[in-house]
Every structure is written in structure tokens, then in C-alpha cells.
Simulated assay, not measured.
Amino acid sequence: MPSNTFYNEILTDHNLHPGHKHDLPDANLVLEGVNPSCGDDIWLKLKVEDGRITDGAFVGDGCAISQASADMMLDLIIGKSEEEAMKLAEIFLRMIKGEVTDEEMDQLEEASVLKDISHMPARVKCAVLGWHTMEEMLKTEKE
């Protein structure tokens, strides 16, 4: 289990130096995600070609947890198929509820540091904002 220091270092790094927080003009999937309870607001932008996420970014404002979680999610899903990305989202959302195995947790890589967010109910919506937005985006695209 990562220490609080490790959690804080990863969260701080993704918040202060997000690798994916920028515009993505050639995105072919764009969806706004809003957390009305705290004002987090992101625009998730994905470039999907032949069922594979080839690039992704987000813009918007929010707390450190929502911004870092969205950045970690993009680290994980870029290069994956839409199905793999949906599976990772499902694992992440179950992790927040405390319902994952260690093997599943390993698949989340750095995003697994957010597992204890479930002990901070007010912050759960922050952590899942990007993941729910991605799920909604990919489900809508299939319809």
C-alpha cells in the first residue's frame, strides 16, 4: 500500500505538471464533465481511430484531485482500445468502492494511489469526474 507521502507526491506532480492538460484540436470525441457539488469542470478530448484511443487531453478547472485523476486516466488509456479503456474505468470505479482485487489494482498503475479517496466522501466525485466523462463519451459514441 502506498504511503501518504507517495500519494501526495503523485497527486501533486499530476496536478502541477499535467502531461495531458492542453487543447487537442483534432479530437474526434469531446465531452464536458461537471461536478456541480464543487464546481469542477473539465472538457475531455479524445482522438479515436479504428477503436483505439490514439491521443487524449483535457482542459478546464477543478481541484487537485479531479485534475490529477483525469491526467492519470489519460496516461492509462492512450494507446488502448475503447474496450480496454472502459474496462479500466470499471476497475477504477470499483476500486473507489473498495471492490477490487490486487491484480485489478495493479492494472490502474499510478491511478491506484486514489484508492483511499473512498474515505473522503466529499472528494469521490472529484476523483471519478474524468472517468465518468470518458465512460459516457465512449458509450454515447457506440449508440
Rank of each mutant, 00 (worst) to 15 (best):
N35F: 04
K45M: 15
E9M: 02
K21C: 09
S66H: 03
M73W: 04
W131K: 00
D71Y: 01
L16V: 11
K21Y: 01
V30P: 05
E110K: 15
I10M: 07
G60S: 06
C126R: 00
E32D: 14
S66D: 01
D40I: 07
G62V: 06
D41Q: 09
L46H: 08
E104I: 07
E109F: 08
V48G: 09
I42K: 07
I10V: 14
L29N: 13
V30E: 14
E141H: 15
N8W: 08
D106F: 12
R123L: 00
K142N: 15
A122H: 00
M120V: 13
T12K: 14
M95I: 10
A27L: 13
G19C: 00
I96R: 08
K87W: 07
P25G: 01
H17D: 01
V48L: 09
R52V: 15
D55A: 15
I96Q: 07
D41C: 07
E143H: 15
L138M: 06
L24A: 05
M1R: 07
E83P: 00
E90V: 03
M95Q: 08
S69G: 07
L11D: 07
N8C: 03
E83T: 13
I91G: 06
H17L: 03
V128N: 01
V124I: 11
M1G: 13
A127H: 00
E103F: 08
V128H: 00
D26S: 10
F58R: 09
H22I: 00
K115S: 08
K45P: 04
G39W: 04
G56C: 07
D13E: 15
V30T: 14
Q107F: 01
T101S: 12
E90H: 11
E135W: 12
D71T: 04
M95S: 11
L74N: 03
S81N: 06
R52L: 12
D41P: 06
M137V: 02
E143W: 05
V113I: 14
N35P: 08
V30C: 14
N15S: 14
S3Y: 10
I96A: 04
E9G: 07
A57D: 13
K97P: 03
A68W: 08
D116R: 12
P2Q: 10
T133Y: 09
Q107E: 15
H119E: 11
D61S: 12
A111H: 07
G19A: 01
V128C: 04
A85H: 12
G51C: 13
K80Q: 14
E49D: 14
E82C: 10
I10A: 06
E143P: 02
L114H: 02
S69Q: 05
T5I: 09
L108H: 05
A70E: 11
T101W: 10
D26I: 02
V128R: 08
K142G: 14
C38D: 06
T140C: 01
I65Y: 01
D71C: 12
H132K: 13
C126T: 00
N28F: 12
W131S: 01
L93T: 09
L24T: 05
F92V: 05
H17R: 10
L46W: 03
L44P: 04
E32T: 12
Q67L: 15
D50W: 11
V48F: 08
I65P: 02
M73Q: 10
L16F: 13
Q67T: 15
G130M: 11
T133F: 08
E104M: 07
K21H: 06
S112M: 12
L46C: 08
M120Q: 13
L46S: 11
D13V: 00
P18C: 03
L138Y: 06
